[in-house]
């Protein structure tokens, strides 16, 4: 029982950081990044290739995360420009379709070029007992990294000038412009940050499970579910929802079967939309 909860938390932290990346971009500009999981896999494969070529793991990880951050910046500065010129539903639809396309392209290229490539980051050492459960070192280190990244994000959005400006655009874009905030700049920087978070997902996940080149779609779906449940635009909501859903996931896998987990998670998202449309901690009205 304790083991199931702990495993759920470990998984939930990965969900959390996935959801955070998606929710920020959606909250700011209405773009549902359906390529978010694929961006994470892109970063994983970059890292795996670099390690294959003899680059040290640490350096490869840094380059891989930076690469996906730059990918995020470039997508915002190119493909997303016509999206942000649209308003309301057409903006959401155009953003969704274009990012779906980006997801297909990343998926296609990776499957064509590196069909059997996968990123695994081995953390050696014996398991560490926590509350009587032997936890793998890789899982614990991954969770530690996510907690640090998550806490930094929360502090960034709460206490820095740029972080506050980001939240202002999420809450009232016109109000933000009247304070001198340029929403376009904020969106570009945050799309890049979202890419970095996708990279963090790839790296932390690879510490316990191989991240294969076809994992993108699943990761995108998880990100979407967490973002919906947590509330669009809210990082702390993503963390709350991620951990909750991680536990729900491992429980349903343990007591029912792994085949049911995605359905249970989708059900949780659907219920959230019906009962609490702004999500658990959503900042969007």
């Amino acid at each position: 029982m304790t083991a199931v909860v702990l495993d759920g938390i470990v998984l939930g932290l990965q969900f959390a950081i996935l959801g955070a990346g998606l929710t920020l971009v959606y909250g700011l500009g209405g773009v549902v990044n359906l390529a978010h999981g694929q961006m994470a896999v892109f970063s994983a494969i970059v890292i795996a290739r670099l390690i294959d070529h003899g680059v040290s793991t640490f350096l490869a990880v840094m380059i891989g995360i930076a690469a996906v951050g730059v990918l995020g910046l470039l997508i915002d500065l190119s493909l997303m420009k016509p999206v942000y010129r649209q308003k309301g539903e057409s903006r959401v639809l155009l953003g969704l379709l274009l990012m779906l396309g980006v997801g297909f392209i990343i998926d296609g290229v990776l499957e064509w070029k590196y069909p059997i490539e996968a990123l695994t980051i081995r953390i050696s050492g014996d398991p560490i007992p926590i509350l009587g459960v032997n936890m793998r070192r890789g899982s614990l280190i991954a969770s530690g990294i996510i907690v640090v990244v998550g806490a930094s994000l929360v502090l960034f959005f709460r206490f820095t000038t740029f972080g506050r400006a980001t939240r202002s655009v999420i809450q009232d874009e016109r109000g933000a412009r009247l304070c001198g905030v340029n929403p376009a700049t904020v969106r570009t920087v945050i799309f890049g940050l979202s890419g970095v978070l996708a990279g963090v997902v790839a790296v932390t996940r690879a510490m316990s499970t191989p991240v294969v080149s076809t994992a993108g779609v699943d990761l995108t779906i998880f990100a979407l579910i967490v973002a919906v449940v947590g509330g669009l635009g809210s990082v702390s909501g993503s963390f709350f929802a991620g951990i909750l859903l991680g536990i729900v996931n491992t429980f349903s896998a343990f007591y029912i079967g792994t085949y049911i987990t995605t359905i249970v998670l989708l059900l949780a998202a659907a219920l959230t939309i019906v009962l609490r449309p702004s999500g658990l901690l959503g900042e969007k009205p």
């Binding site: 506050r164 939240r167 202002s168 809450q171 009232d172 109000g175 933000a176 412009r177 009247l178 304070c179």
Partner: peptide
């Protein structure tokens, strides 16, 4: 706004989920 001409619309456009202090802080942006 940054040139020094600041508009307060009738609809106010405040940031509803932020404290008074944070709303004020944003007024000083950047």
């Amino acid at each position: 706004v940054r040139a020094g001409m600041v508009y307060v619309p009738a609809e106010r456009h405040l940031f509803p989920h932020m404290s008074v202090r944070d709303n004020l802080a944003l007024g000083a942006y950047p």
